[in-house]
Design a protein around this nucleic acid. Structure first.
Lengths: 161, 161
DNA sequence: TCCAGATAGTATGGCGCCAAACAATTTCGC
DNA sequence: GCGAAATTGTTTGGCGCCATACTATCTGGA
């Protein structure tokens, strides 16, 4: 086997997987940010609002720290994401009855409407992004990414002790 | 994460795959940045140096724009990555014979040494990150991410016309 | 009861990356 | 040949996110 194609069939070294992942992440953010520009949103804000629309009916309003954990961002970043959505009137901060430290984040009717527009934009874009990727592969991708995320989480929390 | 197992059998909507991917990317960067801190490097610089070590023997010195394309970053970002490696004496900019616009980037002996240390750090960390992910799955993950990256690339370049 | 520690959210400073504008140089059409 | 267009690399301004430190509040043990 020629040296050049040897790596093609091989399992790639991890650093190469991570390199590809970082690159894909940057590209996805750029692509979504452009499409979402008409709504005045970036990808993180859109993901958050879509999640709130999806989760609110069953889970009710959530604390900022829960949302941060769900999205894998810090509390400070989540705070400014919510600031931004709140300024547009798409979410509201409600005080919690027995704990004056926390805010409960609730999606508003106009936020719900915006989330539906996000879904439409997402549908159009993802149609182009999933070319050559089957439903089964998408599921597999999601599964592996989640496992990777769990491992990362474990490494990071083990390190900060 | 009890609520994600509910969707495990389902093919997740794309926005959720992307959300997971962005989160994994943030976590990976954080984990690597901490481990690489002892070398004074961040993940992007490490990936670039490792790539130069791997590619230089066969491809020779490369132009900045080629490196940028390979890593999926802009030309400006690549410029500052190279500045940083050059300041540490790990790469050198050489003029190209027939084109005075470009720099050819070559790894130095001490850069090669640093790249080997990067590889060691990567080996230790990836051992923890690949828990529960088989060799075959790793290859599959890399394949799907590459396809995703190609699709992203196509979308973005089609849009800027 | 009371105080030490934990926890939610905010403010601040820094870093990585992008987009756009720019300068230098090459390339291509006429 | 010559000028317009394209290409390489840099500069600048802005944004997203992190880490840290801080405030306010809750909780649990002596």
């Amino acid at each position: 086997m020629p040296e050049s194609s040897k790596h093609e069939l091989d399992a790639p070294p991890w650093l190469r997987v991570e390199s590809t992942l970082m690159s894909a992440a940057r590209g996805i953010r750029r692509a979504y940010d452009r499409r979402l520009e008409e709504l005045g949103l970036n990808l993180s804000e859109a993901i958050l609002l879509a999640f709130l629309q999806e989760a609110s009916p069953t889970a009710g309003p959530l604390m900022q720290v829960d949302l941060a954990r769900h999205m894998g961002v810090g509390r400070a970043a989540m705070g400014s994401l919510i600031d931004s959505l709140e300024n547009r009137g798409w979410v509201e901060r409600h005080p919690k009855a027995n704990d004056r430290r926390v805010w409960l984040i609730a999606i508003t009717p106009s936020g719900d409407q915006a989330a539906s527009q996000i879904t439409k934009i997402d549908e159009r874009l993802r149609e182009e992004l999933r070319k050559g990727i089957s439903r089964k592969e998408r599921r597999e991708l999601n599964r592996l990414l989640n496992r990777l995320r769990e491992n990362v989480e474990r490494v990071i929390s083990a390190e900060s002790e």
